[in-house]
Design a binder for these strands. Structure first.
Length: 483
DNA sequence: TGAAATGTTGGGGCG
DNA sequence: ACGCCCCAACATTTC
C-alpha cells in the first residue's frame, strides 16, 4: 500500500465490503474515500422505484456502519456524478478513482466519458466488474453475433472460464484523515412517504450484507436440494429469495456461484436442483446482456411486429390488476404479495404478467413499470427482458399462444390454496376445491366462507375462455399483417 | 418455464 | 359371445 495515494471509491451497484473488486483495489492501493452519489435517478434509464429506494436507504445505513467500524467514512453526495466526482477528487487530493461497472445502457456511455474526463485530470481511473458473472461484450455465438436464445447462451457461460473466487472483505482500510463534507442520508428522502408501505417491507426484509449471507446459507442448507420442483411452489419457501440482495449488490453473483458449486460437491447435492438454480442466475446474465446489446428493448419490443399490436389501455382494468382485484385468486394473491412485501414468487410473476398482457391485452410496458416501482429486486435487465419474454416479443420468448389459465396454475402450484389464503384473506375460509375458482363455488360453500361475490370478493373481470380467444385472434392477426 | 382441442386405445357395462 | 357405446387415460396437434 502506498501512503501517498488516495483512492476515491465510487460505490454504485455494489453495496458490500466482501467480493468488491473496486474496494479491494482501493484498500491495496492507498487511503480509501468511499462515496455514494444519489443522482435522483437522473442518470439512469429509469429512476429507482419506491420499493428499491426503500431498500437502498436501509442498505446505505448498514454500509455506513460497516465502513465506520473500519475507520472509514462513507461520504454521501447528491447530484450529478459527472460534476461531483472531479470536485470531490480535488477535495481529498485523490490520485485514483475506482468504481464497479453498472450495466444500465444510459450510464454505460456516460461513465466512459466520465472516466476519460477524470483521466485528463491526471487521475488513475479503474473500472471493475462485479454486477455480472460474465461481461456482456465477451460472450458471442460462433458467428460472432449476440446470443438471442437462452440455451446456447447458457452453454457458452458454462464453457467459459469460470468466475474467479470471491474476494474476502479487505482486512484493513485506511480512511481519510480530514473531515469531508457529507450529506445526511435522511435528507435525501429515499423512502416513499406512503405510510404503510415501508412497514410491510421491513417485516419481510433485512437489507444488510450480513443478512444476505445468512439468507444464502439458509437457502443452500434447506431449499437447494429440492429447488427444481420447490421453486414452483408459492405456498412454500422453495426459492432463494436472494434477488434483492443480488440486485443491490449486497451479494455478488460470484459469491452465489461459488457457494452453490461448493455445496454441489457435498454428497447428494450435485443435483439437478443446483444446476437449475445456476441456470436461473444465468437468466439474469442473459437479460442484462440483452439490454446492453439491444438498448432499444427498454421501451420497444425486440420483435418489431409487436409495435403495431393494438394494446388496450383501460385505467380501470390496470388498477384492478395492480390492487389484486381481478377475481382470479392466484393473480390477486400475487399482486397483493407484491404490494405488501415488495416481492413476488417467480411462478406467480409469470402468471400475473401473462394475465395482464394476454387476458387484459395491456402492454407489457404497463406491467414492467408497476413492477419497477413495487419490487425491491427490480433489475433493469430482468424486468425488461422478462416482461418482453412473457409478451412474446422478447428474445427466446414464450410463444404468443402460450396463455396461462390462472385457475389451472393455481390448482397445480398452490393445491391447498395456502398461498391464496395468505394474501387474499377474504377467501381464507373457502374450501380448497373452490379456492382457485370462487365463481364456480356452490352458494352454500360461499355462504359458509362468508363470501359474497361481487361484494367481498370480485367476480372475474374477464372470462378466461373469452379472453383467451380474443388474445389468440389478435396475436394471430398481427402475425399475418405484413405491412 | 401451456392449454385446449382432437385423436387413439382399451377396459367394462350392457343389450 | 359379440358388438356397441361410454369414457377415462393417454398421446398428438393446434393455437
Amino acid at each position: 500500500m502506498d501512503k501517498k495515494r488516495t483512492v476515491l471509491l465510487w460505490v454504485r451497484g455494489d453495496i458490500r465490503l466482501a467480493d468488491n473488486s473496486a474496494l479491494t483495489y482501493a484498500a491495496e492501493t492507498g487511503v480509501v474515500v468511499p462515496v455514494y452519489i444519489w443522482e435522483d435517478g437522473k442518470a439512469e434509464s429509469l429512476p429507482p422505484g419506491g420499493a428499491a429506494r426503500w431498500w437502498l436507504q436501509q442498505a446505505l445505513v448498514d454500509l455506513q456502519a460497516q465502513f465506520h467500524k473500519r475507520g472509514c467514512k462513507l461520504i454521501l453526495r447528491r447530484g450529478d456524478a459527472a460534476r461531483i466526482l472531479p470536485q470531490l477528487a480535488k477535495e481529498c487530493r485523490a490520485t485514483d478513482v475506482a468504481w464497479g461497472r453498472v450495466y444500465d445502457p444510459e450510464t454505460v456511455a456516460r461513465d466512459e466519458k466520465l472516466a476519460a474526463r477524470l483521466r485528463r485530470q491526471k487521475l488513475d481511473v479503474s473500472i471493475h466488474d462485479g454486477y455480472l458473472l460474465f461481461a456482456p461484450e465477451t460472450l458471442r455465438t460462433k458467428a460472432g453475433t449476440v446470443f438471442k436464445v437462452f440455451t446456447p447462451f447458457s452453454r457458452a457461460c458454462l464453457a467459459a472460464k469460470p468466475p474467479s473466487k470471491p474476494l474476502p472483505p479487505p482486512q484493513d482500510l485506511r480512511g481519510f484523515s480530514q473531515p469531508i463534507k457529507s450529506d445526511i442520508l435522511k435528507t435525501w428522502k429515499l423512502t416513499p412517504a406512503k405510510a404503510q408501505w415501508p412497514k410491510g417491507l421491513a417485516d419481510d426484509w433485512e437489507p444488510t450484507e450480513q443478512a444476505a449471507h445468512e439468507q444464502l446459507h439458509e437457502f443452500i442448507q434447506h431449499n437447494l436440494n429440492a429447488y427444481k420442483t420447490g421453486r414452483d411452489r408459492p405456498d412454500r419457501e422453495g426459492t432463494s429469495r436472494l434477488s434483492p440482495y443480488l440486485h443491490h449488490g449486497l451479494l455478488s453473483p460470484r459469491q452465489i456461484w461459488h457457494a452453490i458449486h461448493q455445496a454441489m460437491h457435498k454428497p447428494g447435492a450435485g443435483s439437478p436442483s443446483a444446476e437449475r438454480y445456476i441456470l436461473e442466475i444465468l437468466w439474469r446474465e442473459f437479460c442484462n446482456h440483452l439490454i446492453v446489446n439491444f438498448p432499444t428493448m427498454l421501451d420497444k419490443p425486440l420483435d418489431r411486429r409487436f409495435s403495431k399490436f393494438p394494446y388496450r389501455a383501460s385505467a380501470k382494468e390496470l388498477a384492478a390488476w395492480q390492487k389484486g382485484l381481478t377475481g382470479y385468486p392466484i393473480v390477486d394473491a400475487g399482486m397483493r404479495q407484491l404490494w405488501n412485501t415488495g416481492w413476488m414468487h417467480n411462478r406467480v410473476r409469470m402468471v400475473v404478467a401473462s394475465f395482464l398482457i394476454k387476458h387484459l391485452l395491456h402492454s407489457w410496458r404497463e406491467g414492467m413499470l408497476w413492477f419497477w416501482d413495487t419490487l425491491v429486486d427490480a433489475d433493469l435487465g430482468n424486468n425488461t427482458a422478462n416482461w418482453q419474454w412473457v409478451a412474446g416479443c422478447g428474445a427466446d420468448a414464450a410463444p404468443y399462444f402460450r396463455i396461462f389459465n390462472p385457475t389451472l396454475q393455481g390448482r397445480k402450484f398452490d393445491p391447498d390454496g395456502t398461498y391464496v389464503r395468505m394474501y387474499v384473506p377474504e377467501l381464507a375460509k373457502l374450501d380448497a376445491r373452490y379456492i382457485h375458482e370462487p365463481s364456480k363455488a356452490p352458494p352454500d360453500a360461499l355462504r359458509k366462507a362468508g363470501i359474497t361475490l361481487g361484494k367481498t370478493y370480485p367476480l372475474p373481470i374477464v372470462d378466461h375462455s373469452a379472453a383467451r380467444t380474443r388474445a389468440l385472434l389478435g396475436l394471430k392477426r398481427m402475425r399475418a399483417d405484413k405491412t
